[in-house]
Structures are given as C-alpha cells and as structure tokens.
Simulated scan of single mutants.
Amino acid sequence: MPSPQDFDRIAAQLSPGRDPVSVRRRLEAVEGILERMFILPGINRPVGLDSIVGLIPVVGDIVTASMGAWLVWEARNLGMSKWHLTRMAGNVGVDTLIGAIPLVGDVFDFAFRSNTRNLRILKKWLDKHHPATMTVEGEVVAR
C-alpha cells in the first residue's frame, strides 16, 4: 500500500508546466500510478490502476484506453515524430483490443504494460532531443 509520502511525491511531480522537464516528471508519475502503484502480496508483482480498472467490463477498457491515449497526446505536444507516436498508439491499441477480451484480456493487461513501453519510448526521445531533462536516480540533471 502506498504511503502518504508516496502520494505527496506523486502530487509534486504532477506540475502543470508545458516544458519538457515538467512533462517528463508528470508522465513518469502517471505511468507509476497506472502500472506500479501497488505490490501484489505473495508474488511481489507491481500492478497499477490500468490492471485494476481494466477488470471492469467495457467501462474499464474505455478508461484505461483514455489514460494511455493521454500519454500519446502529451508526447505529440512535445513534438515527437509520427513514427514514435504511431508506435505508442499501437501499444495502446494492442492493450485495448486484447484487454477487451474477458479474462484473457485481464491476464494480458497484467503482463503487457503499454504505458511503461510508451514511457520508455518517450524517455529515449527526450534524452536525445531534450538532454536537459535526463534524470539520475529521480533527479533532473542539467547539462
């Protein structure tokens, strides 16, 4: 279970700025909420709201697809190439289509973390095009 300090840390990262550093922090925080917010006891596997909300038929799939699409929208606002945006949208699409299948989709959501994949694409792009946003152990490194 997340501690109150975890919630405070996440809230601090959700700054409304449009600069690449603010966007990176916000997307890292959202990805943590969606994919790694809780640890399942017994197997010590992190799960997030994406897997939990996805258990609700139809509505859960729409909500999780919307959250994933928001990450792609933020990447678009940063000026990412169409190739990267297509890859990210493909990850969300695969997660949504297979996630919509009852039971099989729930297991798939547990294993296929589209938001984590999309954050990895975004971080790699930011490190190349906005090197001032690089982070080391959670702290932004200015070059």
Rank of each mutant, 00 (worst) to 15 (best):
V21E: 13
S22H: 01
V23F: 03
R24Y: 06
R25D: 15
R26Q: 05
R26Y: 10
E28F: 08
A29M: 12
V30D: 07
E31I: 05
E31S: 13
G32Y: 04
I33S: 06
I33Q: 07
L34M: 13
E35S: 14
E35A: 13
R36W: 09
M37C: 14
M37N: 01
M37S: 10
M37T: 00
F38N: 03
L40A: 09
P41M: 02
G42W: 09
I43A: 03
N44F: 10
R45Q: 11
R45E: 11
P46Y: 06
P46L: 15
V47R: 02
V47G: 07
G48K: 00
L49P: 07
L49Y: 08
L49D: 01
D50W: 02
D50I: 01
S51R: 14
S51L: 11
S51Y: 10
I52E: 04
I52Q: 03
I52H: 00
V53T: 08
V53Y: 13
V53W: 11
V53D: 15
V53Q: 13
G54H: 05
G54V: 00
L55E: 04
L55I: 12
I56E: 05
V58H: 02
V58A: 11
V59W: 07
G60D: 02
D61P: 03
S66D: 02
G68L: 04
G68R: 12
G68T: 13
A69C: 11
W70F: 14
L71C: 09
L71M: 14
V72Y: 02
W73T: 11
W73K: 12
E74N: 10
A75Y: 04
A75V: 09
R76N: 11
R76E: 14
N77A: 01
N77H: 03
L78P: 00
K82P: 08
L85M: 02
T86G: 10
T86S: 11
T86P: 10
M88Q: 07
A89Q: 00
G90R: 04
N91M: 06
N91I: 12
N91T: 09
V92P: 01
G93D: 03
G93H: 02
T96I: 15
L97Y: 00
I101H: 09
P102G: 02
P102S: 04
L103Y: 11
D106L: 11
F108D: 06
A111M: 13
A111F: 15
A111K: 05
